[in-house]
């Protein structure tokens, strides 16, 4: 009977459509069942020449049957994720799976080399990169605390050796800060390398860029408006077409626009379509 339970659970999992942040995500790749979360905290996905930065979801179910999910981005090669960062990764995990097929991901205990890999892992470019910095962990401690400890240790050592507490603090401040800054610099260049491999195109703009190029030629001397796009895409669309007559969607004159940029065309007449973006005519229905 022992082997039936996991199989039953897997089947249950497979037929479930897990709700992840309001989206229905089909989890078909079961990574493990009956996992001790305290001992097993590393999710390893052996990507090989994978297209990076594609979102995927990791879902798990705790003993009480409650489901949790977290979204990650694919990387070019092997990906290591420290699951202990999630408060809900605790106790006995009934089942865990990812939304990527044909990949033999595993959940296992942490090894020494994992600490180095976690430390060196890149923080991808996001719209928030300009507002805050991600945390680099080294042996489960924030790297900045290591640098702060280094500052104090260096200060003490140099002060004892030289007898000048001020110059010692000056050198300790400089060295610890430069080491901390170097980790950030390393990440900056990694982001540029990622962009280079993508011919300096930003993934989320690729479809929108192509769409806007086509839309521009259709709009011509007419006016356009838009229905709200998500996040930075909305700003990017407004900026790219800022040289064409624009009727802001929040104004009364929006209805005077000949064309509407939207991701939700409904029954309206589609003039241009690329990926999820549509340019629709404001004059009639299809």
């Amino acid at each position: 009977m022992k082997f039936i339970r996991p199989i039953f659970l897997k089947l249950l999992f497979l037929i479930c459509c897990l709700s992840v942040e309001g989206q229905q995500v089909q989890i078909t790749n079961i990574v493990g069942a009956n996992i001790n979360a305290d001992q097993n905290r590393i999710l390893e996905i052996p990507f090989v020449n994978q297209v990076p930065n594609i979102p995927f979801v990791f879902v798990w179910q705790d003993e009480s049957g409650q489901q949790f999910a977290s979204q990650f981005l694919t990387t070019k090669d092997r990906l290591i994720i420290d699951l202990s960062k999630h408060d809900q990764w605790k106790g006995n995990i009934r089942m865990a799976g990812i939304s990527l097929n044909n990949i033999n991901a595993t959940i296992r205990p942490i090894r020494t080399m994992d600490h180095f890999q976690i430390f060196l892992m890149n923080h991808p470019l996001t719209p928030g990169s300009v507002n805050f910095t991600g945390q680099y962990d080294f042996f489960q401690w924030p790297f900045r605390w290591f640098c702060l400890a280094l500052l104090f240790v260096l200060w003490m050592i140099l002060a004892v050796l030289s007898g000048d507490i001020f110059r010692s603090l000056y050198i300790a401040f400089f060295i610890s800060f430069i080491i901390y800054g170097s980790r950030g610099a390393f990440n900056r260049w990694a982001i540029m390398t990622d962009l280079h491999s993508n011919d300096y195109n930003i993934d989320i703009f690729t479809d929108l860029d192509q769409f806007l190029r086509q839309a521009r030629s259709v709009i011509g001397d007419q006016c356009w408006t838009k229905e709200q796009l998500s996040g930075v895409l909305n700003s990017y669309c407004t900026y790219t077409l800022a040289d064409l007559c624009y009727k802001p969607q929040w104004s009364e004159i929006a209805r005077e626009a000949m064309f509407i940029v939207t991701t939700n065309p409904g029954e309206r007449k589609i003039v241009v379509n690329h990926g999820p973006y549509y340019l629709i005519s404001n004059s009639g229905m299809e």
Binding site: P127, Y200, V232, S235, Y236, Y239
Partner: peptide, 25 residues
């Protein structure tokens, strides 16, 4: 190399610069 990407730059700073330049919006 990198295109304009961040929100406030697209809106408040470069977005308005483009509107000024083309004098249409």
């Amino acid at each position: 190399k990198m295109p304009l990407y961040f929100d406030d730059a697209l809106n408040h700073w470069s977005g308005r610069a483009k509107a000024i330049l083309f004098d249409v919006n």
